[in-house]
Design a protein around this nucleic acid. Structure first.
Lengths: 192, 192, 192, 192
DNA sequence: AATGAATGAGGCTTCATTCAT
DNA sequence: GATGAATGAAGCCTCATTCAT
């Protein structure tokens, strides 16, 4: 039974190869930035030949788009689940969202922003997905009398940008707590 | 009649040429993004020969750095003056800062972020300058009992990121008013 | 029938491509001189794309250095072997050296000097290697009473420069004989 | 009365400007080599504007040719006079030639070779002039029974190349004496 | 499926030369 | 006569992409 993390090997199942390549891209982007990224380096880092990269991704553009899509997905996942959980107050849901976002930001900060800023087109949508969760939260929370938000869309955009600011300040927990407090102020959350 | 804005002309005073070139860079960046920026296009857009660009800027890198420096300057200018004006309440100063930032963001949004993200090195400082003004505001306002901010640095980072979110929502005035309200909430400003 | 000297063909073993490129450089240098040498021309002459040149040589500089190294090697080879042959008189060895140098000069004259003068750095050594052989010859021959050379180093430099002068006068054999005679005079060789 | 060596000054008599420019070229060639030579640097070094260089020399090529011509002239001058001096033995004249050549070599060595090798065309002639003096010397000396040279042309080329070798060995005088001795051997000069 | 040598368009930069002042 | 800003051809080099093996 070949170890599930066998890093090399001439033949690999497609998903493994795909992963290797995407991981290589992510690592290189974080190390050297976007401008320095070349298919050659990606191939070398992934331990495959240059041509192989093109077996999995039609172009450099598509390679980056794929990585981006993956990241968006990862970032929208946890928050979306929060809405579905029953018997949580809206404030608790808001706190949960902040926790998820801060965690994601701390993990993927640089990569996220790199991709966001290099791939203008198409890059808006997944962020929008994350934002939509917040919009729903604000609207419902306000309707329920728990929040006091007059301009839902605008406030959502405000907060969507805001949380990233403090993410690299102190310990994850401290930051989360502090940002949760700020979010509550913004939405005018009543003390429970 | 030598118009003062003569758009072309073989010889131009140095500042005019410099401006033409920097304007061309800004326009191209906004239109096509960073990757598509080439010296050839810059020259064509500025109405000069490729070589002329190098008469004014030693390299592509330096060209971008110059544009960045110019933008930073423009963005730090107005807010800094707010601190020096006497007989303003801290809340009024905060409102003024928001107004300045929103205005700057609306004018230079894309360009600003483009430059910020492509030119990591050196790009941090001017943003920091803008942030420092806010830090002072929060600290002094809190000391004066007008604000209620416990974590000054963290909150400053929060707001520094937040304001950009809603900037492209509606009319400039509406956005400004709305963002000012949100800022007040965050800092716990007392109603006057 | 895959001819062993197939001049073209999309894929070639590395040594063959390397050779093609170096040969192209040599040919172009002889035809048009150093200043006129461009990578484009080299590629065209070698029957490869521009990029291919860079697959084999990291830069124009390195391309020239490689050609130089190859030439130096070729030029130092034959003379060095003369010293190792037993039962030759020193005069015979001197004659052999002249023959070798004249032959090399006639084959590689221009190229040799072109490279020598364009690539100052690093180019000294191989010439020095050739000279050292002569120094040994003069010293040993004098010690053996066969030559009469008082300033070995200086005389070696004298001869190292001298031989190139007449190389393109007449037939190879005539020149060799004549230069051998002149060398013998310079070293004061006794009639055998 | 303006000093005759006034190094700068916006207006200069043509010959002075010409000199300044040629001197700048020579200095730059010696410092940085041929490849690094640009008209910009020449102008800067000469203390004139770039355009001014073109008032005196039609092109870069011509600028170099002019410098070369000047050097050739300087190198052929002294030797030529030797032939005209009466009541000197041929051996004495040969010694004089060697002295002149060694002196020239020591003064202009690098520049001379730089120019010689960069400007293939046209560069042969002046060297030929120097060589012709030697040919005459060898022919006449042999006819007079003072030398014993069978192949005049070939021997002249031999010596024309040879003398440069030892030029940078020791003191000028020592080298001259040593090279004179070697020349005498080559031509089979009888002891006086 | 995998390889990697080969390609060639296109980017940045230099610099000889021109010409309006 | 002198200037130097402006020009643009041309060079070096990179790298996304292809394709024969």
């Amino acid at each position: 039974m070949p170890a599930k993390t066998a890093p090399t090997g001439r033949f690999q199942p497609p998903d493994v190869r795909r992963r290797q390549i995407l991981d290589a891209v992510a690592a290189l982007l974080l190390e050297d930035g976007y401008e320095a990224l070349t298919i050659s380096k990606v191939a070398a880092r992934a331990g495959v030949a240059k041509g192989t990269v093109y077996l999995y991704f039609a172009s450099k553009q598509e390679l980056l788009t794929a990585l981006q899509a993956e990241m968006w997905e990862r970032m929208a996942e946890r928050p979306a689940r929060l809405l579905e959980q029953p018997d949580l107050s809206w404030t608790e849901r808001l706190d949960g969202l902040v926790a998820a976002w801060v965690a994601a930001e701390r993990d993927h900060h640089e990569l996220y922003h790199l991709l966001f800023h290099e791939l203008g087109a198409g890059g808006e949508e997944p962020m929008a997905a994350a934002r939509d969760v917040l919009v729903t939260l604000l609207a419902e929370g306000t309707k329920a009398g728990e929040f006091d938000v007059s301009e839902v869309e605008l406030t959502a955009d405000f907060l969507t940008h805001a949380y990233a600011g403090p993410c690299h300040h102190g310990s994850s927990d401290d930051v989360t707590v502090a940002v949760q407090a700020l979010f509550r102020r913004v939405v005018g959350a009543q003390a429970p």
